[in-house]
Amino acid sequence: MTDFLYFWNHFAFVILMVSGLFIIITSQNYIKKIVGLAIFQTSVFVFFVSLAKIIDGTAPILNSVNNVYSNPLPHVLILTAIVVGVATSALGLAIVLQIYKNYGSVEENEIKKEELKENS
């Protein structure tokens, strides 16, 4: 049980990640897929940041009072990753917009039906 509490951030990460993947796979709506993707990515970011947390740690500023501080590098990395994630979502939404303009729908099953009609 103590293990569970100690590693609770791992479990939170797994739950978030799996629900993100679940949304991507099951939803028919392209915008919902993007939302799922965002959740999936965010779960990883949260995990990364939580790994750097040290109990009682502070920001890494050298002074005489605090000598325990959190590692800043993961935060910096995740900052980059968040930017990448935002760009991915933005590009995804832009493509969804174009799909809507071209197909008149953002539902996967409706578009598949139309494609089938086109082929036959």
Binding site: L21, I24, L37, F40, Q41, T88, L91, G92, I95, I99
Partner: peptide, 14 residues
């Protein structure tokens, strides 16, 4: 091409 791009975006991001 749009569907292909979207597909690649999702799978690539994963």
């Amino acid at each position: 091409a749009l569907l292909a791009a979207f597909n690649y975006l999702v799978i690539g991001a994963i």
